[in-house]
Computed example of a mutant assay.
Amino acid sequence: MPEHTDVVELLKAQHTRIRELLDRVAATEGDERKRTFHELVRLLAVHETAEEEVVHPFARRNIEGGEQIVKERVEEEEHAKQVLYRLDDMDPGSPEFMEQFTALRRDVLAHAEAEERYEFSRFADVADRGKLKNLARAVKAAESVAPTRPHPGTDTAPKNLATGPVAAVIDRTRDVIRKAMG
C-alpha cells in the first residue's frame, strides 16, 4: 500500500477490484470461473472483516447517523456472507450457482455503492488526512489476519476478534490445500 493511501482510497480501490472480479466470474466458465470466484470470496471475506473491525466502528462513532448507516451495511454484509457460504461449495458451472451469483453480484454492487455514498464520503468531514492514513494501516493489519472465507454471524468487531483467529488459520489451511489440489 502506498504511504499516501488513506482509508477511503484503499476501500474504493478494493471495491473496484471486487467489481472486476464479479464481472470476470460472470464472463468466464469452467476452471477459470472457479479460480476467479475463489479469489473473489477471499477478497470479500478479508475486506468485510476489516470493515467490521475498523471502518464501521469509526463510522458509528464519528459520522452523523453512523449507527443507522452501519446497521444497514452490516445487514447487507451478513446476507452476502450467507450467500457466499452457500456458493462456495457449489459447482460454478451449474445454473443454480449462476442464479444465486447473479443476485449476489447485484447486492454486492449496491452495497459497495451505499458504503461509498453514505459512509466513506463523510470520513473527510470528521477526520484529517493523517487519521485516514492511520485507518488505512489498521484496515491492512486487520486484513492480514482475517479469515479468507465467509463466516455468517461474525458481523461485529467483538465477534470477529473472538472467532476470527481460529477461522483464519482454518481458512488459510484450506486455501493451501485447495491450491495444491488444483
Rank of each mutant, 00 (worst) to 15 (best):
F97P: 00
T28N: 13
A80N: 06
A27Q: 13
L11Q: 09
E77P: 05
E39I: 01
V41T: 15
T154D: 08
A26P: 06
E143P: 00
G66E: 04
A138I: 00
R61D: 15
R61V: 02
E3R: 13
K131N: 01
S94W: 02
L84A: 14
N134G: 15
D91Q: 08
K140P: 00
A127F: 04
E76A: 15
P147M: 10
M1K: 09
G164V: 01
V166L: 14
A103F: 05
E20A: 14
V126L: 08
Q14P: 03
E99K: 12
H4V: 07
S94V: 02
K131G: 10
A26T: 13
E32D: 13
A168W: 02
L11Y: 04
H38E: 13
I177R: 09
I170H: 08
G153H: 04
R149V: 03
L11V: 06
R106E: 14
E77F: 04
S144R: 08
T154Q: 10
E72A: 14
T49H: 15
A138L: 13
L43H: 04
I177L: 14
R106S: 13
G130M: 09
H111F: 05
L135S: 10
H151C: 06
P92L: 07
R24D: 14
G130C: 00
H4N: 11
P95R: 10
T16F: 07
E29Q: 14
R122G: 05
L135R: 06
T49C: 09
E76R: 14
R137W: 04
H47Y: 02
L10V: 06
E115P: 01
R42Q: 11
E48Q: 14
E51F: 02
R60N: 07
H15L: 02
A146S: 12
A168K: 04
L10T: 09
A142Y: 01
R117M: 07
Q14M: 08
D125T: 09
G164Y: 01
A110P: 00
P95Q: 10
R174K: 14
Q82P: 01
R122V: 04
T102N: 03
I18G: 00
E67L: 06
L10E: 07
R122Y: 11
Y85P: 00
K71H: 13
L87M: 07
R129D: 15
G182D: 03
V54A: 08
T156E: 05
I63R: 01
